[in-house]
């Protein structure tokens, strides 16, 4: 029987971490793009768009990510669409991320004070101009810290894809546990690796926020 050394355990976990990082990146970027689209529908003029996004967000924030993954994985297959685990995982995570980012960003747009709208309107700017030159640049600045903060949620969210059979860090953890019978060591390492990835992001989000607050106070 093969024996795993501690180094074997750590090495295999680190190799699987690649997939956690790739999946996180794909979900975050894809979710960001879709999120921008949703944001414009949500703050746009068309009623139907606003309502659609509202329910979209409600749906994805009101159900467990795990269920969304299950449905993407087994549901799409029933419609004759062949989805390998990585695709189901990516799709579900992108849809989920988009819902949260759109909502976070909406908050940021709304945080731009009303006076700004009025001021820019009085300058004779149209809706698009107001958005382009006045509202979005300010909202963008406020949005950076919570967006970086949410990336941590995305990375942690990828851990659930292990349940539908995508082999990333968490799944590697369960597989290695069963080959070594050392759950304490294995899950300890897994937790530390996640921490090493997420903590710097959390910290930078907090620092950005502090910087932003200071900048605003000095205005």
């Amino acid at each position: 029987m093969t024996e795993f050394t501690t180094w074997d355990i750590l090495r295999n976990l680190l190799l699987a971490t690649r997939w956690t990082l790739v999946l996180s990146l794909v979900s975050f970027v894809g979710g960001g793009l879709l999120g921008v689209l949703l944001l414009f529908l949500r703050i746009g003029r068309a009623r139907i768009g606003r309502i659609f996004v509202k329910y979209y967000v409600e749906l994805f924030q009101g159900t467990p990510l795990l269920m969304q993954l299950f449905l993407a994985f087994f549901g799409l297959g029933l419609f004759g669409i062949d989805v390998p685990p990585w695709l189901a995982a990516g799709t579900a995570l992108i849809l989920w991320t988009a819902a949260f980012l759109a909502e976070i960003w909406r908050g940021c747009v709304e945080a731009v004070v009303k006076g700004q709208w009025e001021a820019s309107a009085s300058l004779g700017m149209g809706y698009l101009q107001q958005m382009r030159w006045v509202i979005l640049p300010q909202a963008f600045k406020i949005a950076i810290p919570p967006t970086v903060g949410f990336s941590v949620q995305v990375i942690k969210g990828t851990a659930l894809t292990s349940i539908i059979g995508f082999v990333e860090l968490s799944k590697a953890g369960t597989v290695v546990t069963n080959a070594t019978f050392e759950p304490f060591t294995v899950y300890g390492f897994v937790a530390l690796i996640y921490f090493a990835i997420c903590w710097p992001l959390s910290k930078s989000s907090q620092m950005l926020e502090r910087k932003l607050n200071v900048a605003h106070r000095n205005h």
């Binding site: 093969t2 050394t5 074997d8 295999n12 597989v175 080959a179």
Partner: peptide, 13 residues
């Protein structure tokens, strides 16, 4: 991938 001796991983995964 979790059921020796039918299928499990070695140290090289």
């Amino acid at each position: 991938q979790d059921y020796p001796p039918f299928g499990s991983v070695g140290t090289d995964m």
